[in-house]
Design a protein around this nucleic acid. Sequence first.
DNA 1: GCATACTATGCGGGTAGGCAAATAGCTCTA
DNA 2: TAGAGCTATTTGCCTACCCGCATAGTATGC
Lengths: 124, 124
Amino acid sequence: MTSTTAPAAPVPDAAACTHTDTVARFFRALSDPTRLRLLEFVLAAERTSAECVEHVGISQPRVSVHLTCLVDCGYVTARRDGRKLVYSVGDPRVADLVVLARALAADNASALDCCPLIPSADRP
Amino acid sequence: MTSTTAPAAPVPDAAACTHTDTVARFFRALSDPTRLRLLEFVLAAERTSAECVEHVGISQPRVSVHLTCLVDCGYVTARRDGRKLVYSVGDPRVADLVVLARALAADNASALDCCPLIPSADRP
DNA sequence: GCATACTATGCGGGTAGGCAAATAGCTCTA
DNA sequence: TAGAGCTATTTGCCTACCCGCATAGTATGC
């Protein structure tokens, strides 16, 4: 944690004072169905790029971009194994976050479907 | 658990099997800086619409849309008090989600700034 | 060193969703 | 029942971002 190492920071808690924009961008990484699908796929087990491509069913370049994004945001880490790159989730809090969000989303799924600002794909 | 009520469903747990698209849309509600700012503002205390408008500094119609979105997604609830609408957060898990995300985002803030797919506003 | 996976980057197009401004609708006071 | 205050909806514009396709780059194996 970076907050525990800060001795006399002008802010009481680094985590609590992270710019809201940064947190929003952090959420944005999970707001795309393809990226979320990838994250949950990697969350279940270590996966290679090729496995991810097959799982989500979109082009390899696009999957590469999404995975890079997930790595940049700190959700997953990449490791080379021979010719392949293997992606995995190191921080257990990522699973916590997804589980928590899933529980909340499940309890509000029906209402969520009616939100006009965020229309669902199959409900135009 | 809801799985006990499902007799022969092909899925083990309703919460765990909520469509990924739905969860992604749930995250999308928090992926906008203005909405996240509003949520955290309401999270701290009950707020009226007018207070929210002043806090985020954008037009009233836009705030109305954002607040409606947050209500639809189940993050906040609205209550009428005289002429005003008062918004509050009922589910404590919402706070948990935000705190957890803040902690994760804080630990990856620097890397997040470098993610080209999700560029920050002040870093073109 | 060369060939072959495997992965990343650039380009162009289409849609989603952000904003302000104008306006309609609802709720309480007088 | 007016009238004033508060909130929601509509319109139009513009930017962000997702996509596939083509291609460049890099690490590994022979």
